[in-house]
Design a protein around this nucleic acid. Structure first.
Lengths: 336, 336
DNA sequence: GTGAAAGCGCTAACAA
DNA sequence: TTGTTAGCGCTTTCAC
C-alpha cells in the first residue's frame, strides 16, 4: 500500500508538495505539479483517508439513524439526502437500528468516536444523554431530526403535519358518505402514529360522529400485522365501510386481505393509504393515499444539516412540509 | 473532545495503560484498571476510532456496492449481511451507485483509501482495473460478488441458478397449458436477466415451441417501464395468455396494468413473478413467483468474506443456492 | 505490570 | 514556491 512518502520520493519532492498537488494544486509550480501528478497516475495512489481525517478532525461522513428498516417510504428520503450529501463532499452511512435503542446509540456514538461528522435522526428519541440545564444546541453534534420527531425543543426538525394530513384523509372519506371508518395504525409509540390518530379523531368529532375504539386497530407498519388487523376490523358485528391504513404498505396488505375474503375494493369497502410510495400507483386497485413529499424531506434535512457541519450553531426550528391527498381507485362512495 | 492523554493524566497513569484497559484489561493490575475505568466511565470517553484505525490499519467497516437502489429484493440480503457483520465487529456501509460506474469505483476506492476493509459487490463488473497477467486474488481487496456476477474467474461468488429458475417457472406455466408466454425482462445488460431469458428460451424449446421475440419486452426492473411493457405485450394481434416478469415488482405493476385494462388475473391471463419479496403475498392477487433465498445469499456472502478479512487468501468459488417456485393466486390454467 | 517512545499517513504552520 | 517540522489520537514494541 503506497503512501504519500513513496510518491514524494519517486517524484523527488517532499510529502508536503504531494499533499499540495492533491489539495491545492495552484500552490505548486506547474513543472513539479505535473511530475507529481504523473507519479500519482502511474501508481494509482489514493490518500489514506484515515490519515486525512485524523489530521483534519473531519470524516466527511454522515450517519442516518433509521428505526425501522429501509422501506419504500424512507428510501426516497434517504436518496435525496444522499445526493445532496454527495454534492457537498459527504457520504452517507445508513444505520438501521431495527428499533433497538442500543443500536441507535451505537450509531450516534460514531460521531463521538469520530467516524462521522453529523447525524440524520429518524427516531423519536435522542441517542445521547443530555444535561437538561444546558441548551441542547451546546451538547449535540450536528444533527437533524426527521419524520419521527423527538419531543424536545432545540432540535432542527423536518416533518409534515401528520395530524392535519390524517384529518384531511378522513374528511375525504366522510365526504364519500363513510361514517364507520376503521383505522390500521402504525406503531402506537411512534409520534407520527399518535398524530395521525389524533387527526382521525378530530375529523370524526368535527363531523359529530362518535369514536368507536373498536374501529382502531394496530398494524405496526407491518404487512402481516396489517392483515390481522384487517380481519379483526371486518369481523365486527358492524364492520367499517372504509379503512384508513397509516402506511401504503399496510393499505396494500389490507386490500389483499379484503379481496381474499371476497370484498371488492372500492365497491364494497374503501381503503385509504398514507405516504404515496412508488407502489401506490401500481397495486390493484391503485391506492388513494396521502402523499408525503419524500425527497423534499430529505433535501430540507440536508439544508439544515450542512450549516451545522460548517460550524454554525444548531438552530431550533420545526419545518413542516405540505402533504397532498392523491385520489386513485381504492376509495369510492359508500355502498348504499 | 477528551482524548486518551487526558484520561491518562486524570487517572495518573500513562496513555499506554489507558489503552490497555480498553483493549487488553487483563494486562493491567486490578487496582489501576479500576482507577482508569472509573475515569472513563465518568467522562464518557470513547476512543477516537480514526486514531485506532490509522494505527491498526483496519477500519472494521465493509461497503456494499449496490447498483440499483435498496429494493424490496436486496434489502433482506443486506440485512442478513449486516447482522452477521455486526456479530463480527464490522459495520456495513451501503453504497448505492444508481447504476453509475464512477460511483461503483468511488465506493470501491474506499478500501484503497482505508475507509473500509472489504467489499460486497452486487454489480456485474469489477470496480478496479486489473492486470490480466496476475491472478485476481492477488490484486483485489477482500471481496465477495453476489446476485449480478462479474464474468470472471477467481472471485468468490454467490447466486442462484437464474437460468434453471426461469426454466422452472416457464415449465410451470407450460404445465398450465400456456403456450404463448410473454416476458417482461429486467435490464438486458444484467447477467441475471440474460440467464433468465436463456432459461425461458430453454423451456420453450424443450417443449417444442417457437420463440417469438415479440413476446419478449423489457421492464428494466422498474414499475413504469413494466407498465409500458405490459401494454405493448397485450397490444399484439395474439397477446400472451401468461406473462413472466423477471421481478415481483414488475409483476405487480404488470398485474395493476392488466386489471386497469379490464383483464382478470389469473382468469384471463396468468402472471409469474421472481424473487418472492415480502409484498408478493400481499398484493392482489397474491403472486406466484420464484423465490430467491435472500437471507441465505447475504449470510453465505459474509461467510466467504470473513476469512478474507482475517487475512486468508481469496478463493475462487461459485456458490449456487436453491430457488423455489411458490404457487399463489396470480397464475392459473389457460383460458379455453 | 508499566511507561517511554516511535510511528501509523497525512496536512498545516512556519521557515527558507 | 518548497521543504522541514510537528502533531492529529492511538497502539505497541521495548526496556525497565
Amino acid at each position: 500500500m503506497t503512501g504519500i512518502r513513496e510518491i514524494a520520493i519517486e517524484a523527488g519532492v517532499s510529502p508536503a508538495t504531494v499533499s499540495r498537488v492533491i489539495r491545492n494544486p495552484e500552490l505548486v509550480s506547474k513543472e513539479r505539479r505535473q511530475r507529481v501528478q504523473a507519479v500519482i497516475d502511474r501508481t494509482g495512489y489514493t490518500p489514506n483517508s484515515l490519515g486525512v481525517s485524523l489530521r483534519k478532525a473531519k470524516t466527511n461522513r454522515l450517519v442516518a439513524i433509521i428505526p425501522d428498516a429501509i422501506s419504500a417510504f424512507n428510501y426516497p428520503v434517504i436518496r435525496a439526502m444522499e445526493s445532496i450529501a454527495l454534492e457537498n463532499g459527504y457520504s452517507l452511512l445508513l444505520g438501521d437500528t431495527q428499533e433497538m435503542e442500543t443500536r441507535e446509540r451505537s450509531f450516534a456514538a460514531m460521531v463521538s468516536s469520530r467516524q462521522a461528522d453529523g447525524i440524520l435522526l429518524f427516531c423519536p428519541r435522542l441517542p445521547f444523554d443530555v444535561e437538561p440545564s444546558i441548551p441542547l444546541a451546546n451538547q449535540l453534534p450536528p444533527m437533524v431530526n426527521a419524520c419521527e420527531l423527538v419531543p424536545v425543543n432545540g432540535l432542527p426538525q423536518v416533518n409534515i403535519d401528520n395530524r392535519a394530513a390524517a384529518r384531511d384523509g378522513v374528511e375525504y372519506l366522510l365526504s364519500l358518505g363513510h361514517t364507520r371508518i376503521g383505522v390500521i395504525a402504525g406503531n402506537l409509540k411512534s409520534p407520527s402514529t399518535k398524530d395521525r390518530l389524533a387527526g382521525y379523531k378530530d375529523a370524526l368529532r368535527q363531523a359529530g360522529l362518535a369514536i368507536d375504539e373498536q374501529c382502531i386497530d394496530v398494524g405496526d407498519y407491518g404487512l402481516e400485522k396489517s392483515e390481522q388487523a384487517t380481519r379483526r376490523l371486518m369481523k365486527q358485528p358492524q364492520p367499517p365501510t372504509a379503512i384508513f391504513a397509516f402506511s401504503d404498505e399496510m393499505a396494500m396488505a389490507c386490500i389483499a386481505t379484503l379481496c381474499k375474503s371476497g370484498y371488492r375494493v372500492p365497491d364494497d369497502i374503501s381503503v385509504l393509504g398514507f405516504d404515496n410510495i412508488s407502489y401506490a400507483n401500481y397495486c390493484n386497485p391503485s391506492l388513494t393515499t396521502i402523499a408525503q413529499p419524500m425527497s423534499d424531506i430529505g433535501r430540507v434535512c440536508m439544508e439544515l444539516l450542512l450549516p451545522q457541519l460548517r460550524g454554525e450553531p444548531m438552530v431550533a426550528q420545526n419545518i413542516v412540509l405540505d402533504h397532498t391527498l392523491i385520489i386513485r381507485e381504492s376509495t369510492g362512495p359508500v355502498k348504499t
